[in-house]
């Protein structure tokens, strides 16, 4: 039955669901192609790249959802954005999923798009990235991060190390960016961001 569903969306010339099939699938499920839940689906189905499903991954992924795809979406979205470990797993997988297969880095604008999709919704007090009270990193701080990276850092692409460490950073930083430990082994761009954010926090 899952195989039949796969056949419905797959490319005519190969045993893969491609970008066209994926868009069709989104329409049928009634979700936007930019819905964060798709990143969880991509993780579950071990998608090799954006808008790509293999038959094997598809079958295994849908089986693990235990119910119909469309019905599973709300709870999957909920789980992604509130379950600490699950969020982390999907977040880390997203980097590999999003980058070009032969590249080690993610172009900066893409990296920020994916982070924006994942991070701000998970920041709420019961979100997957909730920090210890009082809450430190807020959605507006994410915009500082985006601004800093695009305008100040001179960075063109994000490394996996920065990608991975950034969510750990979010969880432990305070709202004034005062408790950051320069001696801890954060990627240097995070150290630089803290300097930037500190000034921002002071000047309001």
């Amino acid at each position: 039955k899952l195989g039949q569903l796969f056949d419905k969306y797959k490319d005519p010339d190969g045993d893969m669901i491609g970008i066209d099939g994926t868009i069709k699938l989104c329409q049928d499920m009634d979700v936007s192609p930019e819905d964060v839940v798709l990143l969880a689906i991509a993780y579950e189905c071990k998608c090799p790249g954006v808008g790509e499903f293999t038959r094997e991954g598809w079958v295994a992924g849908l089986q693990s959802l235990k119910c119909g795809l469309k019905r599973a979406l709300p709870s999957l979205r909920q789980r992604l954005l509130t379950d600490n470990d699950y969020f982390r797993t999907v977040y880390l997988a997203t980097f590999n999923f999003a980058k070009a297969p032969d590249s080690r880095v993610l172009p900066l604008d893409m990296a920020l798009d994916y982070q924006r999709l994942l991070i701000p919704p998970a920041l709420g007090s019961r979100g997957a990235l909730a920090s210890h009270s009082p809450p430190g990193f807020k959605a507006e701080h994410f915009e500082w991060w985006a601004e800093f990276l695009t305008e100040k850092s001179g960075m063109k692409a994000m490394t996996k190390d920065v990608w991975n460490n950034f969510i750990d950073f979010i969880k432990q930083i305070d709202a004034g960016f005062l408790t950051h430990d320069l001696d801890a082994a954060w990627p240097s761009v995070i150290d630089d961001f803290v300097e930037f954010a500190k000034q921002r926090a002071i000047s309001g």
Partner: peptide, 28 residues
């Protein structure tokens, strides 16, 4: 300067000469 050393570490992480030890941030 320490920031310069950290930048060098970033570069080496990216080039995969070194990696962060599993489950830690401060061990390479």
């Amino acid at each position: 300067r320490i920031p310069d050393i950290k930048k060098a570490i970033d570069t080496l992480l990216e080039k995969e000469y070194i990696e962060r030890a599993d489950g830690t941030r401060d061990t390479f």
